[in-house]
Design a protein around this nucleic acid. Structure first.
Length: 624
RNA sequence: GCCGUUGUGGCUUAGUCCGGUAUAGCGGCUGAUUCGUAAUCAGCAGGUCGAGGGUUCGAAUCCCUCCGACGGCUCCA
């Protein structure tokens, strides 16, 4: 709030014309004059809306102080918009003005000029040292005060019960459960429940993402917004394509929806309150926009406008959100594990009723297992968490038990007494990294609230409009997080003496050809032509030892050395990384076709893209 | 967001306690070498020591503020 206080001999005004935001007033209010008064010009600002009472209290104090100093008894409250360029809503401003008038009237003779009118005024300023004062009042916490959703607050107080469910469906107390054969689950449970935090080092993937020239921090952006170099972009692109294409094969329709939404849209406003995340917000013109943290908004708004029959159900829609934005807390951001801008496949399935929802949930549970497996993360690499309300569990015991049975290992279970999110059942697959931190990858949730909130309906067999049940599914988890998990997994492998590497289909260079001297370049070129893979040629004038070392540091799955022997025999000598031990490379002589066949077997079911960098290593810039 | 640690050429780093404008390797460039499986040799270039302010004759070094990174608290995909 901005205040301009003027000790005046007199102040008088007369309304001339109303504006669209003018308050309705009596005839008597249209004209007034005060002698010997403190005139208070006031602009109520948008920040004031975050702390109305506080702002009112502070401005009363200021006004009282001024009144006392100049020793008067009369006050004119005069709305004066031009004091600020960030005005509050007119309604709010009028409320504040009226409240000031009411409070001040208890002790003084107060007049108030009407809000939202063009007025003529005349004022005589006394001109002594204290006669003109200007004050700015801001609610204390307004700068930092963020909007915390009800869901975030509710989670703080919610009661939950933790159990371990074995494949037979039995529930065990966490304290008494024997984790001897389930070390990874123990780490996950510790992370989730007992919150034990032992390590003090950075997760290994941070160094790897830089050294492999995949991704890096971008200091010129906000924290958690990364830059991706060509190799990182390739891996992301392959993963994105894979998840999208396999979802489409499973019947999902790909859509695209906006990145930003109006904070004051009534439907969204309510949803924001139910989602446990913090948003980025942007002021643009008069609108208060926020950046989406998932694709729910766009897809649900789309569903709202659609005409849908029971024959269309279950109906799946997917978007690869590049990006989803969440303003995660600063201390939470590390490398690719948690970001503020991330890429997430977000699929929603509209189901006719709970039976169909449960059936779909089961299907998608299996699909998620398969998806992660194809990406290169198998069931031993992550731990399952299943969360539900007590009511839901009582009604669907057999089904929930079957989830544990499917993975055939104990899973962590969380049961809530009351539902404080929008879902009644959810699972996540949690990856536990090299420093024993857990983070969620795939997840599916049964949402029982949002079809109501977004007014989504379909026509049932009886011709009646019916509320569907919605499923949220992220088949792979965030794409960046998949890369993080693959890097962490590779790092753990190397601890065990296995050479670290990425799955062949994701390796930026799949085959490196390494001519021994420049005269072998021509033949190297020929071999490269015959290989159906991402092949590059290390044509640098370096020793063979050096080039081999570099190929190893890049985790290249197949390295082919070309010298006189190969030119003569027509065969190639291949170092196979996946079969090697550290310091013990496995070399095999084979034909070009045999190598082609091997790579084909390993990668043909997955998407392919061409080499993201120049074919000749000598032509490549260094990114780091 | 709060607390702690930290920030030196593109990368890794010496110097910081005890003030005197900076050390080395990798990478880059030039030249020599044409090489059979984890770093060929020599030379050259490259730094307003995270940013801003202060103390001082003088600051990478001491003080303050801000920014980034890492760890803890808390939370998710």
């Amino acid at each position: 709030m901005r205040l301009l206080l003027i000790h005046s001999d007199y102040i008088e005004y007369e309304t001339k014309k109303d504006t669209p935001i003018a308050e309705k007033i009596d005839e008597s209010f249209k004209k007034d004059r005060l002698e010997e008064a403190l005139t208070v010009f006031i602009a109520v600002e948008s920040v004031d809306e975050e702390g109305k009472d506080e702002v009112i209290k502070k401005s009363i104090e200021e006004i009282k102080k001024a009144v006392k100093q100049i020793n008067t008894n009369r006050i004119m409250l005069y709305p004066y918009a031009h004091l600020s360029s960030e005005l509050s809503s007119p309604k709010f401003a009028v409320d504040v003005l009226k409240e000031l008038e009411t409070i001040l009237s208890k002790d003084y003779e107060v007049a108030r000029a009407p809000f939202g009118w063009y007025k003529a005024f005349r004022i005589s300023c006394k001109g002594h040292p204290l006669s003109e004062l200007s004050k700015t009042i801001v609610p204390e916490k307004s700068e930092k005060d963020e909007i915390v959703s009800e869901a975030l607050k509710a989670e703080d107080v919610a009661q939950s019960y933790w159990k371990i469910m074995t494949p037979d469906g039995e529930l065990h107390d966490v304290e008494s459960f024997d984790f001897k054969n389930h070390k990874n689950l123990k780490k996950f449970v510790d992370y989730e429940i007992t919150k034990s935090r032992k390590v003090e080092e950075a997760p290994p993937h941070v160094e790897l993402m830089k050294r492999l020239e995949l991704a890096d921090y971008e200091p010129a952006s906000d924290s958690g917004n990364m830059r991706y170099y060509p190799k990182g972009r390739l891996i992301k692109s392959l993963l994105e394509t894979y998840v999208l294409e396999s979802s489409v094969e499973n019947g999902a329709m790909e859509v695209e929806t906006p990145l930003m939404y109006d904070m004051n849209h009534p439907t969204l406003k309510k949803y924001l309150d139910r989602f446990p995340a913090r948003q980025y917000s942007i002021e643009s013109d008069k609108r208060h926009l926020f950046l989406r943290f998932a694709a729910c908004f766009g897809q649900f708004l789309m569903n709202h406008d659609m005409t849908i029959s029971y024959k269309n159900l279950p109906m799946k829609m997917i978007e690869m959100t590049r990006y989803s934005f969440r303003r995660e807390q600063r201390g939470e951001l590390v490398g690719l594990r948690r970001l503020r801008a991330f890429t997430m496949p977000d699929m929603h399935t509209m189901c006719s009723d709970m039976d169909q929802a449960i059936e779909q949930f089961g299907d998608q549970y299996n699909t998620c297992i398969e998806t992660l497996d194809n990406i290169g993360l198998n069931i031993d690499d992550y731990e399952v968490a299943i969360r539900f309300t007590r009511d839901f569990y009582d009604q669907n015991r057999t089904f929930i038990n079957s989830l544990a049975e499917t993975v055939n290992k104990p899973v962590l279970v969380e049961m809530w007494d009351t539902r404080f999110f929008y879902f009644v059942l959810k699972f996540e697959f949690n990856f536990v990294d090299a420093i024993e931190k857990a983070s969620a990858l795939s997840t599916v949730q049964i949402d029982v609230e949002n079809s109501e909130r977004y007014d989504i309906k379909y026509t049932n067999t009886e011709g009646e409009l019916t509320r569907p049940i919605m499923l949220h599914c992220c088949p792979s988890g965030a794409i960046e997080r998949c890369i993080y998990a693959l890097l962490e997994k590779a790092s753990m492998d190397s601890e065990k003496g296995k050479p670290p590497m990425l799955p062949v289909w994701l390796s930026p260079t799949q085959v490196r050809i390494l001519p021994i001297s420049t005269r072998h370049l021509g033949y190297a070129e020929e071999v490269a032509e015959q290989l159906n893979a991402r092949v590059d040629i290390d044509d640098r004038e370096d020793s063979v030892g050096k080039k081999i070392r570099d190929a190893g540091r890049e985790w290249i799955p197949y390295v082919v050395v070309i010298g006189d022997k190969e030119v003569e025999s027509g065969n190639i000598n291949v170092t196979i990384r996946s079969e090697s031990q550290q310091n013990k490379p496995v070399k095999k002589e084979m034909s070009v076709n045999e190598l082609n066949k091997k790579i084909h077997e390993e990668t043909s079911s997955m998407p392919f893209r061409n080499l993201p960098l120049p074919k000749y290593v000598s032509q490549r810039p260094k990114f780091i």
